[in-house]
Design a binder for these strands. Structure first.
Length: 331
DNA sequence: CGACACCTTCCCTTTACATCA
DNA sequence: GATGATGTAAAGGGAAGGTGT
């Protein structure tokens, strides 16, 4: 998990909160007024949310594809939206993990978009030809071949995925004695696998089925594992963002408390000043009169002073400018 | 065109396990 | 070595949207 200072480039609406932060923190972005120095706290999560932009910029889906897109449902907490589950053409800049051998079917070469799509077409009838470095591929393939008979009958894709995963699990896990047990074996992803998924997550925080399969293939994981990893990763991102938001709100609260304290003190001082001034200096604000020459309103008691000030060419900025009214006397 | 069922994907919560101090 | 804290993979369930009938 990487936190990064975000000082701009919040061109997208995904992080409205960060956008606000950015405005606060980046005076050039907008004309922030007062509390820049106080509220200049902005931490953005340098994950995923920028990647979609680059992805779409390089390969913007057609308008027709745009129509086909499902309405983005995936959203984080208010104002935070993860990328919509669009189906951009797969131009994943997949960094090939170093555990994939150079001469393996998938290892050591970068798939072009077309090539990857072509490979994904194969996945319609899954053939997990990638063999883990130390797996029992043959048994897995056999196993999967048997299981795949039910593929066309079962319409629930998750079931299929699970079936694939169960089979793949037997292949990818070293401990095949877990094969029959219903107990889930917690396996930790390798650093390379995590890094690989992390890189992919930076590109896009959500996956479409093709991407999922492609990533699963290349990271030598099951599609379900990739899916779960992305779910958990999004959850972690959200959690971090919540923490950042809380920190920001905390600072806001502190700033406002300090401001309130200062204003209370000012009010108190003014009251003290008012009570200490002689009675005749206190100006009753019962009636308002309009200055005939400058058309400003002043209290009747203060009128002599303001008129005098006006006649002397002094500033009467404390007076309230109002629109001229027919009557010179307002009550 | 609305109702309905089904599927898929997502998020949220919880559980289980691995790792570390 | 036992233990609690922490991190995280995985499961389960509900919500929401898409699609076909």
């Amino acid at each position: 998990m990487e936190l990064a200072l975000s000082l701009g480039d919040n061109t997208k609406k995904q992080f409205s909160f960060l956008e606000m932060n950015s405005k606060i923190n980046n005076p050039s972005a907008s004309s922030t007024s007062t509390s820049d120095k106080d509220l200049g706290f902005c931490m953005g999560l340098d994950v995923a949310f920028g990647g979609h932009k680059s992805l779409s910029s390089s390969s913007s889906p057609s308008a027709e594809d745009e129509k086909k897109k499902p309405v983005p449902r995936a959203k984080l907490s208010d104002g935070i939206r993860v990328s919509s589950p669009v189906d951009p053409p797969l131009q994943l800049q997949l960094h090939f993990p170093n555990w994939l051998p150079e001469n393996s079917p998938q290892g050591g070469r970068m798939l072009s978009g077309a090539a990857m799509v072509a490979e994904e077409e194969e996945e319609a009838v899954p053939s997990m030809s990638v063999s883990p470095p130390d797996s029992v591929t043959s048994s897995f393939q056999l196993d999967f071949g048997i299981k795949s008979y039910g593929y066309e009958r079962r319409s629930n894709k998750r079931d299929i995925d699970d079936e694939v995963e169960r089979s793949a699990s037997r292949a990818s896990n070293e401990d095949n004695d877990e094969e029959n047990g219903s107990t889930r074996k917690k396996l930790r992803l390798s650093k390379d696998q995590s890094a690989f998924l992390e890189d992919s997550f930076k590109e896009h925080s959500t996956l479409n089925p093709k991407q999922k399969i492609a990533l699963a293939k290349q990271s030598n994981l099951r599609p379900r594992q990739v899916e779960v990893w992305f779910q958990n990763r999004r959850a972690r991102t959200k959690l971090k963002q919540t923490e950042v938001d809380c920190e920001y709100l905390k600072r806001c609260c502190e700033s406002l408390t300090e401001e309130n304290r200062r204003l209370q003190k000012e009010v108190k001082e003014l009251r003290t000043l008012k009570t200490s001034t002689p009675f005749y200096m206190q100006l009753p604000a019962t009636t308002l009169t309009m200055c005939p020459s400058c058309e400003r309103v002043a209290t009747s008691a203060a009128q002599p002073a303001t008129s005098a000030a006006h006649n002397l060419g002094l500033s009467t900025s404390s007076l309230i400018p109002v629109k001229p009214r027919p009557t010179k006397q307002v009550s």
